[in-house]
Every structure is written in structure tokens, then in C-alpha cells.
Computed example of a mutant assay.
Amino acid sequence: MRRVPLRPARRVPVCAALLLAVSCAPAEGGSTTGPAPGAPTGVTADAGSATSVHVMWNAAGTGVDVYEVYRGTTKVSEVPAAQHMVDVTRLQPSTPYVFTVRARNADGRIGPPSREARARTPASVAADRSAPSRPERAAGRVVDGRAVQLSWAAARDERGVRSYAVEQGGVRIHTVGGGQTATVVTGLRPGTRYTFTVRAQDAAGNLSPASTPVRLTTPGAGDRRGTAPTGFTAASRHSAGSYYLDLAWDPPHVDGVITEYQIRLDGGTDSSLVWGGTPPPGRAHHSLYAGREAGEVHRVRLRARLPDGTWGGFSVERTVTTGRRPG
């Protein structure tokens, strides 16, 4: 039998395959739509009256054009990217509600929904036309170029104060629960004069007279005083043949939920600490791997991503030596 020699398989040069892939790319001037925004974090919902709920959230990063607020599956509000709160009105008394927030970019791409925030409106109060008393002793201080802290004395109402409304220039910009007499207002502009007042509201929606004005001027851009974690400590710990840096700190007092921190080790290495949901209240704790050698010196500090999406100030820097107890 005559054998027919087999021909070797033809090889396609790698450069030809790469050239083909490049030639399939969109021509210059084609679509440049970027990825959809991420899900907003730190979403909270608090009933302001028997017919309204105040919804707040953290910024979802850059590239956001608007936020869409949903009650269940129904979109009930749409606000610009600079706004991270809204009052949802025309609700029913004594009713539970579920809210989510979604971010949308300028190309119309919508990100995933946030975690659900639940609130229940209180019962309506029949024939209640008596407004709460004026909140007294209103005061404030600057936190940084984008935030201020306000405080006031509790107002009085015969049937109880349900919430407090913070106004700026006569426009409501924030709401807190009736048991709260201080808050931090974020999302402000650096180098700007503001005038704030506070009103108390009862379950029937009656508003008190406004408090005395609180006038504050935010410092220029770049000033992050008051936004750094405080009480920062770092200690070395040995476990299973390795050393760890046990970190602890008090989160900065801001209006919203902090879900992310940036940890800077030895002046150059950054790592992120992100809570998947709402972080535990009070003092925060985290362990950082530091290798297997004793006697190594490390410098560590950290900062928080604020609810407005910007980074706060760094904490004090701590120096830790592995295998050595803190002095």
C-alpha cells in the first residue's frame, strides 16, 4: 500500500490574529459608554411623620448623573448627583415601606439597587393642630470644607416630637429622628457662608417655628479637619507563626454611614477595608497581616471615605514593632 505523506497543519502567525482583533475594534468616534455606576451604600430610611419618610445614602463614586429612589418597585423620586437625601411624601400612616436607591450615569446606564432600607410610618393623630415648641439653643461648628455639625435643645410637644428638619436658606435639606438633637450636614461647598435653622415636627406633620439662625462659613477646599478617625491605636500580635497589627479607632462624626477605610502602611502601601453591609456601631477594629519576622518596624495610619464620596483626613500615624508590646 502506498503511503501518502501528511501535510503539516498550517500555522496562523500570532501577529495576524492580533491584527484581526484590532481591526474589529470600534472606529474612532464610536460609542464610549462607560460601565454602569455601583450601588449606593449606607442607605437609611426614617419616618418624618405619619405620611413621609426621609431617605439618605452615601455617594456611589464618580460618573453619577442622578440618583433614583424606589419605594418597593416604584420609582418615587429622582435627584441630581450632588444630593444624597430626599423626603418621600404622600405615604400612608401605620404602614411599613421598603426603599432602595440606584445611581444612573449621563449615558443612561443604571447601576444595581442598594441594600433595602425599611421604615414604618407612625399612626396619624386626629385633630392635632398644635405645633411643637421652637428648638432652642441652636449652635454649630465647622467640620471641614464640606460638612458642619449642628446641635439644639429638644423641643416640646404634647404628643411627642417625631422628627427635626434642618433648613438652609428656608429650604429643608435634612431630617433626623425626634430623639436626636445633633447632626452633621455634608455635601456643602468649601469657602461658602451658610445659614441653618431647625424645626421640630410631630406625627401629624405640624412644624414648629424655626430656631434662631446658625451662621457658619466652610473653609476652603482641601481642609479636612474634623474628618479624621480619632483614638487610633495599633499593637503587634503573634498568632500561628505570623505577626499581625491590631488596629482600633473611633469613626469620624459624619452624617451618614462610613463603609470604607484606606489603610496606609509604611508610607506607601495602601489597602482598603470595606464593610459589605452596615458596619458595627461604636469603635472599629481590624487586624492587618505584618509578616513572620520579629523586630520589624511598621508605620500605619488610615482615613475614611466620607458619605459624600470624598476621603477624609488621615488619623495620627502609629509606629509598631512586631514582637514588641506597645509602651
Rank of each mutant, 00 (worst) to 15 (best):
residue 87 D to P: 06
residue 70 Y to H: 06
residue 273 L to F: 10
residue 72 G to I: 04
residue 327 G to T: 10
residue 97 Y to N: 01
residue 62 T to R: 13
residue 269 T to S: 15
residue 173 I to G: 12
residue 109 R to P: 03
residue 143 V to C: 01
residue 115 R to C: 02
residue 286 H to C: 07
residue 143 V to D: 07
residue 78 E to K: 15
residue 67 Y to L: 08
residue 303 R to I: 01
residue 122 P to R: 04
residue 171 V to F: 13
residue 156 R to M: 05
residue 110 I to E: 07
residue 126 A to Q: 00
residue 204 A to F: 00
residue 302 L to Y: 06
residue 190 P to H: 13
residue 105 N to H: 03
residue 245 L to M: 08
residue 42 G to R: 13
residue 38 G to W: 06
residue 98 V to F: 00
residue 126 A to Y: 02
residue 64 V to M: 11
residue 101 V to K: 14
residue 69 V to Q: 08
residue 266 D to L: 10
residue 203 A to H: 01
residue 43 V to I: 05
residue 101 V to L: 11
residue 231 G to R: 14
residue 120 R to L: 02
residue 300 V to A: 14
residue 311 W to H: 09
residue 86 V to M: 04
residue 189 R to A: 12
residue 25 A to E: 09
residue 133 S to P: 09
residue 29 G to D: 01
residue 22 V to H: 13
residue 311 W to M: 04
residue 286 H to A: 15
residue 2 R to M: 01
residue 192 T to P: 05
residue 67 Y to D: 06
residue 177 G to D: 12
residue 294 A to G: 15
residue 76 V to W: 02
residue 107 D to C: 01
residue 65 D to K: 09
residue 155 A to M: 00
residue 93 P to C: 01
residue 22 V to L: 13
residue 166 V to F: 09
residue 22 V to F: 11
residue 308 D to A: 03
residue 253 H to C: 02
residue 314 F to K: 05
residue 88 V to F: 10
residue 275 W to E: 08
residue 283 R to I: 02
residue 122 P to S: 00
residue 45 A to M: 07
residue 206 N to Y: 01
residue 60 A to Q: 11
residue 84 H to M: 03
residue 264 R to A: 04
residue 228 A to M: 00
residue 65 D to H: 08
residue 196 F to D: 00
residue 30 G to V: 04
residue 319 T to M: 14
residue 129 R to V: 03
residue 82 A to T: 08
residue 296 E to M: 12
residue 176 V to C: 14
residue 71 R to F: 00
residue 8 P to G: 08
residue 59 A to G: 15
residue 216 L to G: 08
residue 78 E to W: 02
residue 62 T to M: 06
residue 243 Y to L: 09
residue 166 V to S: 12
residue 58 N to T: 11
residue 314 F to G: 07
residue 298 H to D: 11
residue 140 G to W: 03
residue 144 D to Y: 04
residue 299 R to E: 14
residue 294 A to M: 13
residue 34 G to D: 02
residue 168 Q to A: 13
residue 23 S to I: 02
residue 326 P to A: 08
residue 269 T to M: 09
residue 213 P to W: 05
residue 241 G to S: 07
residue 68 E to Q: 07
residue 18 L to C: 09
residue 260 E to P: 00
residue 105 N to K: 08
residue 284 A to D: 07
residue 88 V to N: 10
residue 248 A to E: 15
residue 83 Q to K: 15
residue 153 A to P: 08
residue 200 A to V: 01
residue 86 V to L: 05
residue 308 D to S: 04
residue 235 A to K: 15
residue 268 G to Y: 05
residue 72 G to L: 01
residue 185 V to C: 13
residue 43 V to S: 09
residue 238 H to L: 11
residue 129 R to T: 04
residue 266 D to F: 13
residue 304 A to M: 03
residue 25 A to F: 10
residue 140 G to R: 02
residue 28 E to D: 11
residue 268 G to F: 03
residue 99 F to G: 05
residue 70 Y to L: 03
residue 162 R to A: 02
residue 225 R to W: 05
residue 121 T to R: 02
residue 101 V to N: 15
residue 80 P to V: 10
residue 29 G to T: 00
residue 310 T to L: 14
residue 273 L to W: 15
residue 169 G to Y: 03
